[in-house]
Simulated assay, not measured.
Amino acid sequence: MAQELSIIKIGGNIIENRTELVAFLRLFASLKDPKILVHGGGKLATQLATKLGIESKLVGGRRITDAQTLEVITMVYAGLTNKNIVAKLQANGCDAIGLSGVDGNAIQAHKRPVKDIDYGFAGDVDGVNSPLVSTLLERGLTPVFCAMTHDGKGQLLNTNADTIASELAIGLSGIYSTTLFYCFEKKGVLMDINKEDSVITHIDSKKYQQLLNDDIIAEGMLPKLTNCFHALKKNVGKVCIGHPSMLTTKDEIFTTITL
């Protein structure tokens, strides 16, 4: 039986809230190995862009990445956010290594073709360097990936962090039994965004279509759930969405995604 591997993506307000982030990283460090952390940082990037007079544009929960925006997100994602997370994990006894898709050619991508919308320097993943990531895990290191990839020709690309997590889970599913966790400040996918206790505990393909038709699923949750179903169709064992407490508390309420 294949060894279990947890791929955990952290985002939402937890990244921006110092107290929440410190608590999460302490919890993450305590989880058994092997594990991988993937982080976003979109709100911090938006804040910095605003300070620099650069307008941020999002369509359907995905960022439009022009040349100036690419510079900002590289600074925030691969620099400030990634290294702060790695430093805090080291302080909690977790031997972490900060990575982007560029490092070790870990995640290859291509610039998203222009169709109805020009997303600029946004990257769609082509593949994961599973042997590299597996080698790091085998040596007791915990990879911490930011949401940056490259095209192999010298061009950096902004790639949705949910997609990074999904593709890592898919890429490593041939070596490990992979479980994908999307953690943020809510308890799960909510039926009513204004009611914290309205968690939808189970979503399958049929339920997902119904939620779309009723406009329950929107904005940033759209790409997240798209990645959930994509991962399940590509041999990922389990996908969950909810508060980080779901990682350690058996009776915690969260959302489980199935086909």
Rank of each mutant, 00 (worst) to 15 (best):
M1Q: 10
K9T: 08
K9F: 03
R18S: 13
E20V: 04
V22D: 12
A23C: 06
L25I: 10
L25D: 10
L25T: 10
R26V: 07
R26D: 12
S30T: 12
I36D: 01
G42A: 09
G42Q: 08
A45K: 05
A45M: 12
T50F: 04
I54D: 04
I54W: 08
K57I: 13
R62M: 15
I64Y: 01
E71M: 14
V72H: 02
T74P: 01
M75V: 05
A78W: 03
N82C: 11
A87S: 13
A91I: 05
C94I: 10
I97N: 01
S100E: 07
G101F: 08
A106W: 03
I107M: 06
I107E: 03
H110V: 15
H110A: 11
R112H: 07
R112A: 05
V114I: 15
D116Q: 12
Y119N: 00
G120F: 05
G120A: 08
G123H: 00
D126H: 06
D126V: 09
V128Q: 04
P131Q: 08
V133A: 01
L136M: 15
L137I: 10
E138T: 11
E138I: 06
L141R: 14
V144Y: 00
A147Y: 03
M148V: 15
M148I: 15
T149Q: 04
T149A: 12
T149Y: 00
H150D: 15
K153P: 00
K153Q: 12
L157T: 03
T159S: 06
T159W: 03
D162H: 01
D162V: 03
T163L: 12
A165S: 02
E167H: 13
L168G: 00
G171W: 06
G171T: 09
L172A: 01
G174P: 01
G174M: 09
F181M: 04
F181K: 01
C183A: 11
E185N: 13
G188E: 09
G188M: 09
G188V: 08
V189W: 06
I193Q: 12
T201S: 14
S205V: 09
Q210G: 04
N213Y: 07
D214T: 10
D214Q: 14
I216N: 08
E219S: 14
H230C: 08
H230P: 03
A231T: 08
L232I: 05
L232P: 00
K234M: 12
G237D: 11
C240E: 13
C240V: 11
S245V: 10
L247Q: 01
D251I: 04
E252F: 15
I253G: 02
